[in-house]
Simulated scan of single mutants.
Amino acid sequence: MSLIAKTPKPPYYAVIFTSQRTEDDHGYGPMAARMVELAAKQPGFLGIESAREDVGITVSYWSDLEAIKQWKANAEHQVAQKLGREQWYSSFKTRISKVERDYGI
């Protein structure tokens, strides 16, 4: 399985979530896995890439802004967002970008 998302020809959108974790886990691992599973079922989801060291970076790809809005409003995702603010992240930032071009091998 490739760790690089298979995205369609641009344009499409990327949601870039960068974070610094708190010391305690508080169920983070299972919730993170559930969010990937749930996002993959959302209309407009195209793929996801994630890495974690000192800073965690997760990039999810979406067909359009409406799909991103619907994912943000998902009830289970809202629970995860609340837990993230309260328990899992000492800081985070979300950025939304339109992908105009991509290339690679």
Rank of each mutant, 00 (worst) to 15 (best):
W62A: 07
G27C: 07
V15D: 00
V59R: 05
P10M: 01
V59F: 01
K41T: 15
E53K: 09
D64T: 05
D25N: 13
N74H: 15
P30F: 08
P43K: 14
D102H: 13
H26V: 09
M31D: 15
I105H: 07
P43I: 03
S2I: 07
E86Y: 01
A73E: 13
T94A: 11
A32T: 12
M35A: 10
Q78V: 13
P30H: 14
D25E: 15
A14I: 07
A51L: 13
K98T: 10
Y13V: 04
S50F: 07
Y89V: 06
G27F: 08
E76Q: 15
H26L: 13
E76V: 14
E49V: 06
S60M: 08
Y13K: 04
T22H: 06
W71F: 04
S2F: 07
W62H: 06
R52K: 13
A14N: 02
S97W: 05
K93P: 00
F45L: 01
R34K: 13
E49P: 02
G84T: 02
Q78C: 13
G44R: 06
Q87Y: 15
D54K: 09
K82C: 01
S91C: 03
A39E: 08
D64A: 02
S91E: 09
E23N: 10
G47K: 08
M1T: 12
K69R: 15
T94S: 10
G84I: 04
V15H: 00
V59E: 00
S2T: 12
L83M: 14
R101M: 12
G27E: 10
A40L: 03
Y61T: 08
E37A: 14
A80I: 09
Y28V: 04
Q81F: 07
I57A: 06
T7L: 12
L3G: 15
G56R: 05
R95N: 09
G47F: 07
H26I: 06
A75F: 07
P8Y: 06
I16Q: 05
G56E: 03
W88M: 06
R101T: 10
L65Y: 00
T7S: 01
F45R: 03
R21Q: 07
D102P: 00
K41I: 07
A40F: 04
F92K: 02
A40C: 08
V55D: 02
E76W: 11
K72Y: 08
M35C: 08
E23H: 12
K69F: 02
S19E: 02
H26D: 09
A5E: 01
N74M: 09
N74G: 06
D64Y: 05
G29Q: 15
T7H: 03
W88P: 00
P10Y: 03
A75I: 11
Q42H: 12
S91F: 01
G104M: 04
L46A: 04
P30W: 12
G29I: 11
E53L: 11
I96V: 15
A80T: 05
L3C: 04
Q87W: 13
P43R: 11
K93L: 11
G44K: 08
G44Q: 07
Q81V: 15
D54C: 01
Y89S: 00
A67G: 09
L46H: 00
E66Y: 00
Q81C: 01
F17W: 03
S60Q: 06
G104K: 02
L46I: 07
R95C: 12
T22C: 10
